Computed example of a mutant assay.
Amino acid sequence: MGDVYMENLLKNMTWEEYRTKVDKSFLILPVGSTEQHGPHMPLGVDAIIAEKFSLAIAKKLDAVVAPTLSYGYKSLPASGGGPMFPGTIDLKGSTLTSLVYDLLEEFIADGWKKILVFSAHYENEAFLAEACDLLLRNQKEEYPKVLLCNWWDNLSEQTIPRIFDEVNFPGWALEHAAITETSLMMHFEPELVKGELIIDDGFTSPPTYQSFPPSKSLIPSSGCLHTARSSSAEKGKIIAEDATCNIVSILKKEFSSNLILNP
């Protein structure tokens, strides 16, 4: 994404450079996962997408992006393919909650008043919310404030039919390794997408229940929950720009209008 983004990464800063950012900026913590994404995409899709979105937001508002959490809550069969695939490395819910709680506590101790937790893994949501709530539930002041969001809930209504122009929208749970994630990867990291391995696979009838232990016969052997057919870098760009714009508007509202919007 170019060197212009690198200056927003916490990991590239000295402690003195980092210190100067705390009072005049805000912090973004990207959270993804490491899990299978079908035969055509790498295990790190969610972490890559989380970081790329965070960098795009940071560039707009001159924010600092913390190192990406690349492990998330358990992949579930009907929304991530489940634990049956090699390379899907899961955390327990309590582990993810404790990890994010500890990180937020440390960042707030450093003086950060405004923090965005950005998730790109569907199953993370409840545990990230739990960490934020446990940390700040008894606070009386407005700041420090932590916002939690993802990209899929921040797409404009008119964007959905532009993305699902050939295939019906199956719901976000089944959009794992399907059109939106594949398109985003084609936009962000095209060299990591094996387009020739995209297959027209997925659930014919998604389950309405969960089974423990999870059934190996429940999930398509490819790991795909819905087709990625009609994915494109152009669609990925539409998704990325739309969600980023909408999230920037939320941040300017919630973190005060004095945030500086870069061109």
Rank of each mutant, 00 (worst) to 15 (best):
G2M: 14
V4G: 01
Y5V: 01
M6P: 00
E7C: 10
E7Q: 15
N8I: 00
L9R: 08
N12H: 09
M13H: 04
M13S: 10
Y18C: 04
Y18M: 07
R19H: 07
T20Y: 08
K21L: 04
K21F: 00
V22Y: 08
K24I: 02
V31F: 03
E35Q: 11
P39E: 03
H40V: 10
P42W: 06
A50R: 01
K52A: 07
K52T: 07
F53K: 02
S54C: 09
I57D: 00
A58R: 03
K60L: 00
L61K: 00
A63Y: 04
V64L: 03
T68N: 04
L69S: 06
L69K: 02
S70Q: 05
Y73H: 15
P77G: 11
A78F: 15
G82W: 03
G82S: 11
G82Y: 00
P83W: 13
F85S: 01
P86V: 07
G87F: 08
D90E: 15
T97Q: 15
L99T: 10
V100S: 07
Y101G: 05
Y101S: 02
L103G: 08
L103T: 03
F107Q: 02
G111N: 08
K114T: 05
I115T: 01
I115K: 01
F118Q: 04
F118Y: 08
A120N: 06
A120Q: 09
H121Y: 05
Y122T: 05
A126Q: 15
L135K: 03
R137I: 13
Q139F: 07
Q139L: 02
L148H: 08
N150E: 04
N150G: 13
N150L: 00
S156I: 12
Q158S: 14
P161W: 12
P161Q: 09
P161L: 08
D165T: 13
D165G: 13
D165W: 13
E166H: 09
V167T: 03
V167L: 04
N168L: 06
F169Y: 14
G171H: 08
G171Y: 05
W172I: 05
A173N: 14
E175Q: 12
H176R: 12
H176Y: 09
H176S: 06
I179R: 02
T180K: 11
T180W: 07
E181T: 10
S183F: 01
S183K: 12
L184V: 09
L184G: 02
L184A: 06
L184R: 04
M185V: 12
M185I: 12
M185T: 08
H187I: 01
F188C: 02
P190S: 09
L192E: 11
L192Y: 11
V193L: 13
K194P: 13
G195I: 08
I198W: 06
D200L: 05
G202I: 08
F203Y: 15
T204S: 13
S205A: 10
S205I: 15
T208W: 00
Q210V: 10
Q210R: 14
P213E: 05
P213C: 02
S215P: 06
K216Q: 05
L218Q: 15
L218P: 05
P220A: 09
G223R: 00
C224P: 01
H226V: 01
A228H: 01
S230T: 07
E234L: 10
K237C: 09
I238F: 04
A240G: 06
A240V: 00
A240H: 14
D242P: 11
I247L: 06
S249Y: 10
S249P: 02
E254K: 14
S256M: 12
N258G: 06
L259Q: 07
